[in-house]
């Protein structure tokens, strides 16, 4: 019958709407389900996974020594020309001239965090850091020199 169908239709519609309202009502009263992370406040407790790709850094040990031989593998592997290796000639202990890196220039503004340079590095000289707050006021600050001033290559790394 027409009227029966009409009323059934309305009843079904109201029921479906009430179902949705029950769901939102549930969340309105259950504040434990809130998933918001209050980002700048939780900086101390923020735990980024160790594989997170934030920026490329070159670890130095306590003697200010790094592991980079200047093989340019990273420079070649990079799809964007983010890394540039600049050489200098250095005298080693025996007084021989030896090629070593002067600066390893890293353009953070060009980097896409693809991890290919770290994969390519044969001596594990560079790695990804977990920093992610990269905003600066001057674009030039994003061009970084990865090796510390006066740093040397670690002994035994070829």
């Amino acid at each position: 019958m027409f009227i029966k169908k009409y009323i059934q239709e309305i009843w079904g519609a109201v029921k479906s709407l009430l179902k949705g309202m029950r769901r939102t009502g549930y969340y309105f009263t259950h504040h434990k389900e809130i998933i918001t992370q209050q980002y700048p406040d939780n900086r101390e407790t923020l735990n980024l996974p160790e594989r997170f790709k934030g920026e490329v850094v070159m670890p130095h040990d306590e003697n200010n020594e790094h592991r980079c031989t200047g093989c340019q593998a990273c420079e070649l592997a990079c799809p964007n020309g983010t890394i540039k290796v600049i050489f200098k000639n250095e005298l080693n202990a025996e007084g021989k001239k030896k090629k070593a890196i002067d600066k390893l220039v890293y353009h953070l503004e060009l980097c896409t965090m693809c991890n290919l340079c770290i994969e390519a590095c044969p001596s594990d000289a560079i790695k990804m850091a977990q920093t992610f707050e990269h905003s600066v006021f001057d674009r030039n600050e994003l061009t970084k020199i990865l090796n510390n001033p006066g740093s040397k290559i670690m002994d035994g790394v070829e």
Partner: peptide
């Protein structure tokens, strides 16, 4: 606040 709590957010705080 109502919208935030229904959307499992905190809302303005």
């Amino acid at each position: 606040k109502v919208s935030a709590w229904m959307q499992i957010r905190l809302g303005p705080n």
